[in-house]
Design a protein around this nucleic acid. Structure first.
Length: 821
DNA sequence: ACGTCCCGCCAGGGG
DNA sequence: CCCCTGGCGGGACGT
């Protein structure tokens, strides 16, 4: 079972194999004057890339072969282009970034399937890994430790780990969230922020001990490593380790995300909490620095896992580095005993915890509804159809071209990408016809649970929730208006200027219907837009995004020819790599350029993409799809933003009224679609025969002005879906206070229950869906259900709305704080 | 100048 | 005692 050693070019010494000189503690300077027998020739570099990209997933045998795939070569070449051109080797020297932990982690992850089947159970031999990846052992430990904290791997023995993949992720996250809640992280965070706010200058004049002691120590000052039953089989000996710092830290870090409402955590806060908690020791600077360094390490691997993404929180003082959770939304705590996490002290009795192992493998549907689905053909069919729907949604009109400036004309309803993917889309479209049964089925699955629950739990406030959903969109900010009775929300897109008004706290502020002119476009429709929104360097992204598309297109034919899943995987990996690199460059991967084909012939949307992290797109999926997918985000437009009356008042949002926008129906996109009269937007409404997604879509379109208010677009192969709700939106709100801050809106229109995603993922190991729990909202009104950040947001400062790095809207009160209220 | 974070020393401890 | 682990922090790199 051991992973065969790759015939690595062991002959080439790695850069890291330092010269025997003496230079004890300092980081060796970059070898500009490269040593003669330099291993880092362009070729070697290429090799490395290829090897990294090669999927060693199912059949390792084919690895070599595959590595020759032109696609990869292209990729590699692309990456190396500059190097090749540059005569000097220095150029080809791996830059610091090329050696980043994040990249390394990517390579590492590429070696194993996200969702390994029992048969694929792979063992990780550190020696092999280090050799193949050309890295120092030490680095691997960093990665493995974090993975271990998520139970993606388990240590077996020295040098040996087992790869679990993401199977355990849902449980782990749930467990972590639970522990995080128990640990009162929310309060701690608040306290820290408060403190900062109080003496907002005075960097280190802190008597934070109080804080630490007050909260941290109260409960369990020492939080041990969180175990998951069934996953912790590590050698007992190993288990009794005290060195779990990185692992524990990683878990805590994750907890912070899971617990805080806007799932954004700044490094600073995280560091403080993690320090304060452990020991109330003096927070000397060095300690803080070290903590930060460690956090970066952890963050890098979490980023590689697409669980978080880097963003910046803009405050008065400037931008602070922070990370935003982009992973799956964690289900609300459920007392499913099976899922119960055991927090054990590092030491001991592991033997007992071994019990529920079943759990390891198949807890795809961890939450309450523990219906164990078997892959019954009918179900599969259903799922497929759902998938198709989703894809369609994702391929809804997008505007690959324009971003903010938007004029209606600039919105190509039919993304070129779609046209470029005839082979792919077509089949999907065909699968479109849903039988009444299926429809019914879907409804059953999605509405009752999602909607009912959402309404019940989500809106504690009896009063009709009115929500404001500041969009992060660079130019358009949607405001979501929940419908009083149906619970359906309406979204209004505001022009930035208007949005600004909204976001600012001006008492007199009024939300006004936006004139068509102000409507800049569908925010989500454009992938670039999305990127822009979410990223800090929107411009860069845009720039990068464009290029990728063509690339994807070119490769498409090739992909087609490749039938084996391996190839697909490989390819996607290569793309990932590529994207990764790009990301490094532009801080963000612009759009996932990778398209993955599966044997089944279905295009599997990336889970991550769905989550709204464009970065995720890069992950393994579709190249062109990424942009197509973006519409998904827009879909989230529809949603209920729970807000208490008081909150509303605070915001000063008087009466909204939705003005029908001009109809800009693009013949291409909607033309053929029959128009139905729409009476019920609320998908939750059982009586509604309409597919939730389509409702959402219609809704969106209407508000965007693509179709008249009264018109509805039926599920159309092309446009149909609006994703749903699974994509939460960012909205501003203040949890307890009157301040509006970044938050997420949960949509109550769910295309299908989160478990469907799980199910889908079970069907498609490589393109797993993270559980998206639409109604996962509990105490946090704006908890993001499935993920994403859609990018709607804008940040408003005194001087006006501005895009923030993650594209969230910040409504500062006095100071901007992203992480929580 | 600062944010990021690579690098590798070296201590702990298992085998 | 060797070597795996992994805490730790200097200081290099990137912007």
């Amino acid at each position: 079972l051991k992973t065969p050693l790759k015939p690595a070019a062991a002959s080439q010494p790695v850069l890291t194999e330092r010269q025997p000189d003496c230079q004890p503690l300092s980081t060796p300077p970059k070898p500009k004057d490269t040593p003669p027998a330099d291993p880092w020739t362009p070729t070697s570099n290429l090799k490395m890339l290829i090897s990294a990209a090669s999927p060693e997933i199912r059949s390792r045998e084919q690895r070599k072969q595959l590595s020759d795939s032109s696609a990869e070569v292209l990729q590699a070449k692309h990456c190396l282009q500059e190097h090749l051109l540059g005569d000097e080797y220095e150029k080809s020297q791996p830059s610091r970034k090329e050696k980043s932990l994040g990249l390394l982690c990517h390579k590492f992850l590429a070696r194993y399937p996200d969702y390994p089947s029992a048969a694929q159970k792979s063992y990780i031999c550190l020696d092999e890994v280090t050799e193949e990846l050309h890295v120092e052992r030490r680095r691997i430990y960093d990665i493995v430790n974090v993975l271990e904290s998520l139970h993606m791997v388990s240590r077996l023995a020295r040098n040996r780990y087992i790869w679990h993949g993401r199977h355990n992720l849902p449980q782990t996250l749930q467990a972590l969230k639970k522990v995080g809640e128990e640990n009162k992280y929310i309060q701690q965070i608040q306290m820290i922020k408060k403190r900062e706010y109080e003496h907002e200058f005075d960097p280190d004049g802190e008597r934070k001990e109080e804080m630490a002691s007050s909260l941290g120590s109260s409960e369990q000052s020492e939080m041990p490593f969180v175990e998951l039953p069934g996953v912790e089989f590590r050698a007992a000996s190993v288990n009794g380790r005290k060195y779990k710092s990185l692992r524990v830290m990683s878990q805590k870090f994750v907890m912070l995300f899971l617990v805080s409402t806007p799932q954004i955590v700044s490094l600073e806060v995280a560091a403080k909490i993690l320090i304060g908690e452990d020991q109330l020791e003096d927070l000397d600077k060095s300690k803080f620095k070290t903590k930060i360094r460690r956090l970066y390490d952890i963050a890098n691997v979490l980023s590689s896992l697409k669980l978080i993404k880097k963003v910046h929180v803009t405050e008065e003082r400037g931008r602070k580095p922070a990370f935003k959770w982009t992973g799956p939304e964690v289900l609300p705590n459920i007392q499913d005993t099976k899922l119960e996490a055991t927090t054990t002290t590092c030491s001991p009795p592991i033997s007992e915890s071994i019990p529920s192992k079943e759990h390891c493998s198949k807890n795809l549907f961890p939450s309450k509804g523990k219906q164990n689905f078997t892959r019954h053909s009918s179900l599969i069919k259903l799922v497929k159809s759902i998938e198709n729907d989703r894809r369609k949604i994702q391929s809804a009109p997008t505007s690959p071209v324009k971003i903010s400036t938007s004029t209606y004309q600039s919105l190509p309803v039919f993304p070129s990408t779609i046209a470029q993917l005839p082979a792919i889309t077509k089949p999907q479209l065909e699968g479109q016809s849903k039988t009444a049964e299926e429809m019914q089925m879907k409804r059953d699955l999605s509405s009752p649970e999602a909607v009912a629950k959402a309404e019940a739990s989500e809106q504690p406030a009896p009063s009709q929730p009115l929500g404001v959903c500041p969009a992060s969109h660079s130019s358009v900010s949607p405001v979501i208006l929940p419908h009083p009775h149906s619970g359906v929300s309406y979204a209004i897109y505001l022009h930035p200027s208007q949005a600004h008004t909204v976001t600012t706290y001006s008492p007199g502020f009024m939300l006004q219907p936006l004139p068509c002119a102000n409507v800049t476009g569908i925010k989500s429709s454009n992938s670039k837009v999305l990127n822009k929104i979410t990223t800090e360097e929107g411009d860069n992204q845009i720039a990068t995004a464009e290029p990728t598309k063509p690339l994807a297109a070119e490769e498409r034919p090739e992909m087609k020819s490749e039938t084996s899943s391996q190839r697909c995987l490989k390819r996607s990996q290569a793309l990932q790599e590529n994207n990764l690199i790009k990301r490094h460059k532009s801080d963000e991967e612009s759009l996932g350029t990778s398209l993955t084909f599966f044997p089944s012939g279905y295009l599997i949307p990336l889970t991550h993409c769905t989550h709204g992290n464009k970065a995720d797109c890069s992950n393994k999926e579709k190249a062109g799809m990424c942009s197509l997918q973006h519409p998904t985000y827009s879909s989230s437009v529809t949603g209920v933003i729970p807000m208490t009356a008081s909150e509303l008042k605070t915001v000063n949002i008087p009466a909204f009224h939705i003005t029908p926008l001009n109809i800009m129906l693009s013949p291409n996109s909607i033309a053929a679609a029959p128009v139905l009269s729409n009476s019920c937007l609320n998908s939750s409404n059982a009586s509604s025969a309409q597919n939730p997604s389509s409702s959402a879509l219609n809704f969106m379109l209407q508000h965007i002005g693509l179709i008249p208010a009264g018109v509805q677009v039926p599920a159309n192969p092309v446009l149909q879906h609006v994703p749903a709700s699974s994509q939460p939106e960012n909205i501003s709100h203040s949890s307890g206070n009157t301040n509006l801050q970044e938050g997420k809106v949960r949509t109550n229109i769910a295309p299908w229950p989160w478990w469907v995603d799980n199910f889908l993922s079970s069907l498609q190991p490589s393109a797993p869906k993270e559980p998206q729990e639409p109604q996962a909202v509990t105490e946090n009104f704006f908890r993001t259900p499935g993920g994403p950040n859609s990018g709607f947001s804008l940040s408003a400062n005194s001087d006006g709305p501005e895009r923030t790095s993650q594209g969230t809207l910040y409504i500062p009160q006095r100071k901007l704080e992203v992480s929580e209220d």
